[in-house]
Write a protein that binds this DNA or RNA. Structure first.
Lengths: 236, 236
DNA sequence: AATCATCTGCTACTTTAGTAGTGGTTTTGT
DNA sequence: ACAAAACCACTACTAAAGTAGCAGATGATT
């Protein structure tokens, strides 16, 4: 992708905003973006990760769900929802082993692609980028660890509350990333089912913590929500 | 630690066997071990990770449980059981942020310690070590991802069977690492409670998949166990 | 404007997991 | 050798989560 491209600026900005690339020098980023290709995937598209083994992708806009399925029950577990600045599949980059997961676009997705070979070249030339890679992977790994702790140590209502708090914007108190998702997708994020999520949404509503419109949750009383998340709210 | 130390050879061998250091040149390993100090922690000792922020540790012998607690219920979740060649705390090395978890020694533990500052120096001098670090972290991250998928997608019996299979030695069919653990600790590994684990152990016994002595499980019929783990065994 | 597909809220029900407690065995420590 | 502690097997019970299904609301499509 060259500077003449009408999307160049937006793509550059996405790279500069990502944990993994933001510490690179401006010149190095421009060098990187030159080797990348812009691709669009439409919303609702399904992919298998191992078919994209030979390249690395950076999200410029839109959301991508990374998930796993239990083939005998059809149940799904969403591992991550990746957004602007996220890189995939980082697992394959780390140990070069097959990572068999499913991807599904939640919106129209705009990504920058680069071949793994070229990534490795760039890394070799700029070993300092390892530092940012570790930082990024640390971030992802903490999310995984937090999730498994959450599921093991807390019930579904607590987990739902944690999810809402985790995705709440600190200032506007609006939900980011997960707003606009149906109950079903929320369930996949916390390891339960649609009916259970809906049951708890009704409870949170009754407690006055949230209000709900179709595919939209507003946080009405943050203190209540926090109390529920910390298992200190008794009147539920 | 110097070559004169009576434990030198064993420590060297532990480093050479670890994913993270095994690709280093022999000279570099010797350089590394010189800056390390050998420490012993007795079995059953409890530690808080953030008190060891400034150093990195490599296990020479023994097992260390890394876990998290729900303060309001007292329930525990074992994140990893670290053994020979494992490095901790790798999370802090990655992003330099506090990682608040608990540690408990399951055996007498023998570790090599080195200050983070010196680690960073060594890494800077040998950027190729990043490659091994990524490989090691990838390995740990896959375990986390697998665990959270497991918990979300499968019931407790299936998870117990997965645990047994995962820790089974391919040749001897003996359990490694987790043998010698009480039901309680097994429960913490798969996100459930002692009573449930025991119930399922009785089921696996009845199905002929395993036999049990005190703190010791033997796999009697691997095919049965695999069938149960794959949710294809119906007569349970 | 009518149709279709998706999503929510709800009820009734089943299954699974978790809690509590107890007697008895094995191991550990003194 | 004995007492104490840890652990296992088991029962009975409770609570939580999951399943199934449906009516009505909503939004998208044609």
């Amino acid at each position: 992708m060259t500077p003449e491209n009408p999307h160049y600026f937006r793509c550059l900005e996405a790279l500069k905003g990502s944990i993994i690339f933001k510490d690179l020098d401006s010149i190095d980023i421009q060098h990187l973006i030159k080797k990348m290709t812009r691709i669009k995937w439409t919303a609702g598209v399904f992919k298998r990760s191992f078919e994209f083994n030979s390249s690395l992708h950076v999200i410029v806009s839109g959301r991508l769900k990374m998930y796993q399925i239990n083939p005998s029950t059809g149940r799904e577990h969403t591992i991550y929802i990746l957004t602007k600045g996220d890189v995939f599949d980082v697992m394959h980059l780390m140990d070069n082993k097959t990572h068999d997961v499913y991807w599904e676009t939640l919106d129209d997705l705009e990504i920058l692609t680069i071949s793994i070979i070229e990534v490795n070249q760039i890394i070799e030339e700029n070993p300092k980028i390892y530092h940012s890679i570790l930082k990024y992977i640390g971030h992802m790994m903490r999310m995984l660890e937090e999730e498994s702790n959450d599921i093991c140590l807390h019930n579904t209502l607590t987990r739902l509350s944690h999810l809402l708090l985790k995705h709440m914007d600190g200032e506007s108190h609006q939900l980011k990333t997960i707003n606009n998702l149906p109950n079903n997708e929320i369930a996949n994020l916390i390891g339960t089912t649609r009916a259970v999520v809906n049951r708890h949404i009704q409870e949170l509503k009754k407690a006055g913590a949230i209000s709900v419109k179709r595919k939209h949750i507003d946080i009405e009383n943050l203190d209540t929500l926090i109390a529920i998340a910390e298992e200190k709210y008794t009147n539920i």
